[in-house]
Computed example of a mutant assay.
Amino acid sequence: MKSPSMGVEEELLLVSATGDPLPRSKAVVADVQELDVALELTRAMVEINSPVCETADELRGHLTEMRARLAKAAADEGGRLLAIAVPPHGRAAQSITRKPRYQELADKWGLLAREQGVCGCHVHVDVPDKEAAIRASNHLRPWLPVLLALTANSPIYLDQDTGFASWRWLMTTRWPCAGPPPYFESVEHYDALVAMHLASGTLIDEQMVYWDIRPSSHLPTIEVRVSDIPLTVDETVVLATVVRALVMTAVEDGSQGPSLEPEVLRAAYWLAARDGLTGNGLDVRTAESLPMVQVLKRLLQHVEPALQELDAADMVEDGIQRVLSTGNGAVRQRRAFREGANLIALTEVKP
């Protein structure tokens, strides 16, 4: 059977020479109209949308080119492009993009929206239908915390160490329909919960379903949204390949997926957001506490057959080892901050 295709959305931050968020996204996007690059909620954010890809190498090539061309466009507008998940300098409230939907979000959610200048990475994987997407969501829930730990890249926020490897995740979970999704009994169960949110006014549309996994509202994919924007393209490619393998494993299983103790999942998330890869985590399936690196190894064992099918096992293993030896974005940012080094230089995407 043909392996499912994948695609990635990367949100990136525009800053000035001083590192403050730079509200020039409209001009930057206009400079690269031939690319699939979109405006985001705040005027200091831009979003790359990769083409549909069949291989990791194809995805790497697209993201490398798109990051570089967008970085040049940012430089042409007097800015710099950062692969970082929260603003390292400046002030919390940011300027909202002048689109009716974003203006409505700001009107209804106030400071929550204006402080939401945070950058994530969303991985789309093709699925046969919505029913398969719902089953995959249930199957992926135990592994969401370790995906967050792997990609954590937001410890420094507004000139201070937050004490968390992923401050972005804590900020995004303040929205009414965010964080880990519920366990879904069926497509009808999912649809009923979304309809409840819409009817109650906690959402203005289905695009506001910000759960860390969701069936796409407009594509035949499942979308995994848990991750910070990784510091490097290679880290994004590893993340996307692991997510692809998780979805393949879930679809192959065919069952509705494991029902988890919600408080164990909540604790696992909190540990992942605070400590990233450097502390203890939880195997959500067993509630066993062990080093997060060991949880990561269990994840890789879980998807090993799918990675072999994709001919990507060696690539993923090499990528994970690089992250463990050099540190992910959170580790490298915190090290630079402690040593007084320049965070902008560390996280800047080069043209």
Rank of each mutant, 00 (worst) to 15 (best):
V194R: 14
H197W: 06
L198V: 01
S200G: 06
G201M: 12
I204C: 10
D205V: 05
W211G: 02
P215E: 00
P215I: 05
S216A: 10
S217D: 14
H218A: 11
I222F: 03
E223N: 03
V224F: 04
R225S: 05
V226M: 08
V226W: 03
S227H: 01
D228S: 03
P230A: 05
V238F: 14
A240M: 08
V242H: 06
L246I: 11
M248G: 14
A250W: 08
A250Y: 09
V251P: 04
V251H: 07
G254L: 09
G254E: 12
S255L: 12
Q256G: 15
Q256A: 15
G257E: 15
L260R: 09
P262H: 02
E263Y: 10
R266F: 12
Y269A: 06
Y269M: 14
L271T: 09
L271G: 01
A272I: 09
R274Y: 08
G276L: 11
L277C: 09
L277S: 13
T278N: 14
G279K: 06
G281L: 13
V284Q: 10
V284L: 08
A287C: 08
M292S: 12
M292A: 13
V293N: 07
Q294M: 07
V295D: 12
L296T: 07
K297N: 12
R298F: 04
L299Q: 01
E304N: 07
